[in-house]
Simulated scan of single mutants.
Amino acid sequence: MQLTSTTLLALAIPPIFLAAMPFFGKSKLNPKGKHCYVTGGSTGLGLYLAILLVKKGAHVSIVARNEERLQKALEELEKARQTPDQVLRTYSYDLFDPAASAAAFDAACKEHDGKTPYAVFLCAGAARPGFFIEQDAASLQKGMDNGYWVQAYSALHATKKMVQQRSPGKIVFVSSLVGYMSIIGYSSYTPAKHALRGLAETLRSELSLYDISVHIFFPGTIYSPGLEEENKTKPKITLKIEEDDGGAKPEQVAAALYNGVEKGHFHITVDLIGELFRSSTRGSTPHNNVFLDIFYGLIGWIALAIWRRGVDGMVAKHRKEHEAYLVERNIRPEST
């Protein structure tokens, strides 16, 4: 698409008014009595989001691989049940496989006369941090499987079914704060989260043809079993950079996600740090609040530059320790 100077000038005349009027109308979230589908729903964010949806009166289907954790999750959903007729189901499928992703979705729809869900929340995913020098082709591919394909396959099948049935709905991706930026240690994880943003940006435009709204979530640190697994392989320097990151409990993060979709936000964050990164890397993404976004953008222009300089300084100081790490693991010969 070619933009001439005249076109740009015309677009720039009323910038605040244009920014305040999203190209697509905002859609509210009202799950009471409706079917919601949650992947990665056995632990962490997915589980607490599923519980919240049950409390809002939704019929909820959760999908994960571990059947034991799914059973425990179902017990938690039952505790949150609001009415006897709520349909609460669990499904054990490997969502890294496209055929299994389709089968899981179809199985959940079958419980509702084959109708597609009102909202699809794609919370499945995992991270295995480490230095890029220690990765191989298999681990890089696994990073994309864990962070991108595990959601993209489900989104693709859900979209096809929604379009076939002429069913309006919602598709919600879960990226990460590193979908806006990144730091040392996340080379196998960050690319997938940026890819999710690219997919969501495209689908927000395209799926408006079918009255399907698209949203994407960028949480920071979540205190969950997933974080415990991440920290087992996370480099010391990455842990050092993140040590002042307060993080949030999964129920707080689930509430932030729910509230963002309820408000019709496309990009959804949890806290001030997330808002600063969102506003500073927004591109053509619609404003959540034009005046606050301008304010956040001004703060981010200064604060994030200072933050990045601090991170770069920490990495530079880590150089000697990292040299010893490489020698210890026979990645680099000891200097003479």
Results as ranks from 00 to 15, higher is better:
residue 230 E to A: 08
residue 230 E to C: 04
residue 230 E to D: 11
residue 231 N to T: 11
residue 231 N to H: 14
residue 231 N to K: 15
residue 232 K to V: 02
residue 233 T to N: 14
residue 233 T to Q: 11
residue 233 T to M: 08
residue 234 K to P: 11
residue 234 K to A: 13
residue 235 P to Y: 10
residue 235 P to C: 04
residue 235 P to D: 09
residue 235 P to K: 10
residue 235 P to A: 10
residue 235 P to Q: 00
residue 235 P to M: 09
residue 236 K to W: 02
residue 236 K to Y: 05
residue 237 I to P: 09
residue 237 I to Y: 12
residue 237 I to E: 09
residue 238 T to N: 13
residue 239 L to M: 14
residue 240 K to H: 12
residue 240 K to D: 14
residue 241 I to R: 01
residue 241 I to E: 10
residue 242 E to G: 05
residue 242 E to P: 00
residue 242 E to S: 14
residue 244 D to T: 09
residue 244 D to N: 15
residue 245 D to I: 08
residue 245 D to K: 05
residue 247 G to E: 10
residue 247 G to I: 02
residue 247 G to Y: 09
residue 247 G to L: 01
residue 248 A to W: 00
residue 249 K to D: 08
residue 249 K to C: 04
residue 250 P to G: 08
residue 250 P to R: 05
residue 250 P to N: 11
residue 250 P to E: 01
residue 251 E to C: 12
residue 252 Q to E: 15
residue 252 Q to M: 12
residue 252 Q to R: 14
residue 252 Q to S: 15
residue 253 V to K: 04
residue 253 V to Q: 02
residue 253 V to I: 02
residue 254 A to V: 08
residue 255 A to K: 15
residue 255 A to C: 10
residue 255 A to F: 05
residue 255 A to L: 15
residue 255 A to T: 13
residue 256 A to D: 11
residue 256 A to F: 01
residue 257 L to T: 04
residue 257 L to A: 06
residue 257 L to H: 00
residue 257 L to M: 14
residue 258 Y to R: 04
residue 258 Y to I: 01
residue 258 Y to S: 09
residue 258 Y to M: 03
residue 259 N to P: 01
residue 259 N to D: 15
residue 261 V to M: 09
residue 261 V to L: 03
residue 261 V to K: 03
residue 261 V to S: 02
residue 261 V to I: 06
residue 262 E to T: 06
residue 263 K to W: 02
residue 263 K to L: 09
residue 263 K to R: 14
residue 264 G to I: 03
residue 264 G to Y: 04
residue 264 G to N: 07
residue 265 H to F: 06
residue 265 H to A: 13
residue 265 H to S: 13
residue 265 H to Y: 12
residue 265 H to K: 05
residue 266 F to H: 00
residue 266 F to P: 02
residue 266 F to S: 01
residue 267 H to D: 15
residue 267 H to F: 06
residue 267 H to Y: 11
residue 269 T to W: 01
residue 269 T to H: 01
residue 269 T to L: 05
residue 269 T to D: 06
residue 269 T to S: 10
residue 270 V to N: 13
residue 270 V to S: 08
residue 271 D to T: 07
residue 272 L to V: 04
residue 272 L to R: 05
residue 273 I to W: 08
residue 273 I to Y: 06
residue 273 I to E: 12
residue 275 E to Q: 13
residue 275 E to P: 06
residue 275 E to S: 12
residue 276 L to T: 07
residue 277 F to I: 07
residue 277 F to N: 08
residue 278 R to K: 13
residue 278 R to N: 09
residue 278 R to C: 11
residue 279 S to K: 00
residue 279 S to V: 00
residue 279 S to C: 14
residue 279 S to D: 07
residue 279 S to A: 15
residue 279 S to H: 05
residue 280 S to A: 13
residue 280 S to K: 03
